[in-house]
């Protein structure tokens, strides 16, 4: 029983950064912007979160620094694609390249330092309930944040007027503009929300998952988060499901490596990436599903004519 609980807990830990980054990108893409810089914003969050936590000794300041770093970094993307109307795919790629380089430079002196771990929640009594106690009341704080984010984003997109406006911008920016909705302003906020989420996801990696700084420690998770949004056909609850499936694959291959299954470890390490491809194929072959759900203006630059 204990083993099952522990495995479930590690799956949640592996799924949380994917979930946070993906839910942020979902809002960005719902507004019609494709930001391929998730990996770069995430690694910036990871390094800034680690650095701030190490220097101040407080993991909470680390979390805050990561959120700010992610949001500021995404502002660069927003300015380029929204104000200067640059190609979103290329700009997102350059954000990732710049983020990987910049984080490596910032983190040079952090390599090998002992990290500060964000403590798990512990509620006396509730956390001691067998099985569900640890799962529901004894996880790291960002786990709860990730679940709250899914609920909040779901509510915002589908139950509020502003959420409706955001979705309408994503489906047709020119119609939304004609209706007087401030397209660019909405998109700026959406991109920065996505950046803040990616930064927070990075903080989870460097303050919870493996509390230390390692170069390129995101290991493609930003890209998997992007794939998750497609997999979820832009629905928050499906992002939740997808993130946990991927968390399970990630943890499953680690356990398989630990058990000494006679398969080369590299093949097992490749599984999450191969699973991403398989899942993308399964989803995208259903043309109607993707056509119906893809924000229609996704990736197209918009320059308001005055």
């Amino acid at each position: 029983m204990d083993i099952t609980v522990n495995i479930l807990l590690t799956i949640a830990t592996a799924a949380t950064p994917l979930l946070i980054a993906a839910i942020g990108e979902l809002v960005v893409e719902r507004s019609g912007v494709l930001n391929l810089g998730v990996e770069g914003m995430m690694i910036m969050g990871a390094v800034c979160g680690f650095g701030a936590a190490y220097l101040t000794g407080s993991p909470w300041i680390g979390v805050l620094a990561a959120i700010i770093a992610g949001a500021l970094f995404s502002l660069l993307f927003a300015f380029m694609t929204l104000t200067l109307a640059t190609n979103q795919v290329a700009t997102g790629l350059s954000l990732t390249i710049l983020g990987l380089g910049l984080s490596g430079m910032i983190g040079t002196n952090f390599v090998g330092l002992p990290g500060v771990r964000l403590p798990n929640l512990y509620i006396p009594g509730l956390s001691d309930i067998p099985v569900v106690g640890k799962l529901l009341f004894g996880q790291d704080p960002l786990f709860y944040v990730s679940i709250a984010l899914v609920i909040a984003v779901s509510w915002f997109l589908f139950k509020t007027r502003k959420g409706l406006m955001l979705r309408s911008i994503g489906d047709s920016h020119s119609s939304a503009h004609a209706l007087g909705i401030p397209v660019i302003a909405y998109r700026y906020l959406a991109v920065m929300f996505g950046g803040a989420c990616a930064g927070l996801a990075g903080a989870h990696l460097s303050l919870v998952y493996t509390p230390q700084w390692v170069e390129n420690m995101t290991a493609g998770r930003g890209w998997i988060a992007l794939a998750l949004v497609v997999f979820a056909s832009w629905r928050p609850m499906r992002v939740l499901a997808g993130a946990y499936i991927f968390g399970a694959v990630w943890i499953g291959q680690l356990h398989a490596q630990a058990f000494g299954i006679p398969v080369p470890s590299q093949f097992l390490s490749a599984l999450p990436y191969l699973a991403t491809i398989v899942v993308l194929v399964l989803i995208s072959r259903n043309k109607r599903l993707t056509m119906m759900n893809t924000p229609a203006s996704l990736g197209q630059p918009f320059v308001p004519d005055r």
Partner: peptide
């Protein structure tokens, strides 16, 4: 200086190319 500075230069270069293309 960390040789990662090369990646930073490369990223900046792409940013500026895309911005000038506007």
């Amino acid at each position: 200086i960390s040789d990662k500075v090369a990646r930073v230069f490369q990223g900046m270069l792409l940013f500026f190319v895309l911005a000038s293309d506007t």
